[in-house]
Computed example of a mutant assay.
Amino acid sequence: MVPLAEAWDSGAHAWTAARREAYANDNDADRSLVAVTAVTDRAKADRHPANWTPPLADARCTYTAGWVATKLRWQLTVDYETAP
């Protein structure tokens, strides 16, 4: 849910290699890995929710809630960014 680059900037840089590997391969939460089309994955890239949300309005709250839940579960910082 939260891209590796964003996780790194939010605290994963201080993790052990084993914890980073566990994060990258996390399948323990329903929202950890979400299947999307290649087009959507490329559009999202490693963007913060302030800069990208799913194209379907109905999915935006679910996506944002999953983002925050992942950050909290992994004890990453949760920040607020403004769109450019």
Rank of each mutant, 00 (worst) to 15 (best):
S32R: 12
V34Y: 01
A35L: 15
Y23R: 07
T53A: 04
T53N: 01
L72V: 13
R31D: 11
T62L: 09
A59W: 02
D79T: 13
V34C: 03
W52I: 02
A35V: 15
D28R: 14
V68K: 10
T40F: 02
A43M: 03
A18R: 15
A24H: 12
A59V: 02
P54E: 08
R60D: 06
T16K: 15
T64F: 07
P49H: 11
D58A: 03
R60Y: 04
Y23T: 10
A65M: 13
A59R: 11
E6K: 03
W74D: 06
A69Q: 14
V34Q: 02
A29G: 01
L76I: 03
A38K: 12
G11I: 01
A24S: 14
W52L: 03
T77W: 08
D46P: 00
G66A: 08
E81D: 12
V2L: 09
A83I: 05
A83G: 13
Y63F: 15
A24T: 13
A7T: 04
Y80K: 07
P54Q: 06
P54Y: 00
Q75A: 04
V34F: 02
A35F: 11
A38E: 14
V34R: 09
P54W: 01
L72M: 10
K44S: 07
Y80S: 07
W67R: 04
A65W: 06
D30L: 02
D46L: 01
D26R: 10
H48W: 09
L56Q: 12
S10Q: 10
K71I: 00
D30N: 07
R20G: 04
T16H: 12
A43Q: 14
L76N: 09
P54H: 10
A5N: 11
D58S: 00
A45W: 03
G11D: 03
D26W: 02
A50P: 04
E81G: 05
D79Y: 07
L56R: 15
L33D: 10
A17V: 12
A17R: 15
A17C: 05
A57E: 11
P3M: 03
E21L: 11
R19S: 05
S10V: 00
T40H: 02
M1R: 05
T82E: 12
A57W: 01
W74G: 08
D9P: 00
